[in-house]
Design a protein around this nucleic acid. Structure first.
Lengths: 122, 122
DNA sequence: CTTAATGTTCAATGATCCTTGAACTAATGA
DNA sequence: TCATTAGTTCAAGGATCATTGAACATTAAG
């Protein structure tokens, strides 16, 4: 429950900021994969296919600051989760349509995603 | 029917580009007002409340290049319309949720919009 | 204690963004 | 013809963006 990193409260999540944050292929891919992974949290390291450690850290911060994901430190890792409920309550239907559109549009299976199988094991 | 200005065909409308184009308060306001105006076309001049002629021209070009609006020259004016159908067929539900979220979020009534009344007359 | 694993921070760089004002084009109207 | 209307183009400026490598911090594991 303790909030190590700054996250905007639901009522402060701003649409332009959310749209800007999602208007980047790397971040959109991260969101799509997070969404395809159900409620399970993921770590930054699982996105290194999309860029360097520094780059992922940068994009994850952007998504967090926009209010799209929640980041919780656990050991040396960061556990990332989509703020599905918060986004749904603030912009009903929005995230779902973005996810659906992304799945139909982005070719991130070209990056090695048969059906999110590699995120199963720990 | 003649297409004076370059518009991306439906199948080339890209989600990241659309999100980026909408991730700007000025452009989001333009879209929201266009949407609130039904099927009626509007001109660049009707958005001068949001910036200079140059700025509006710039933003309108961005929206057109992203595939969000259609621009048709008529005399010295440009008639702007939302590409509702195209966007709906490519990203089902997306535009509607953005419009709804914008209406609930952006304070563009603070710019003199009681209920889109000033767009009625010609 | 030492090493490895996981991210963050910083400074630098090149690219892109948004705005501005001046000059311009094209169409309309007196 | 001359002026007006509506918008575009261009160059310049400052701001923000996304990436990189090097150094660092923190936690975990041997």
């Amino acid at each position: 429950m303790t909030d190590y990193l700054p996250h905007p409260p639901v009522e402060d999540i701003a649409l332009p900021a959310v749209l800007t944050a999602l208007g980047d292929e790397t971040r959109l891919a991260i969101i799509a994969i997070l969404a395809s992974n159900g409620e399970r949290a993921m770590t930054c390291g699982q996105f290194l296919q999309f860029g360097s450690k520094t780059a992922i850290s940068y994009h994850v911060a952007k998504l967090r600051e926009a209010g799209i994901i929640h980041v919780r430190p656990e050991g040396t890792k960061r556990l990332l989760t989509l703020r599905r409920g918060d986004l749904e309550s603030r912009f009903p239907g929005f995230l779902d349509t973005v996810i659906a559109s992304t799945a139909a549009t982005l070719p991130y299976d070209s990056l090695g995603m048969p059906e999110a199988a590699q995120f199963a094991g720990e």
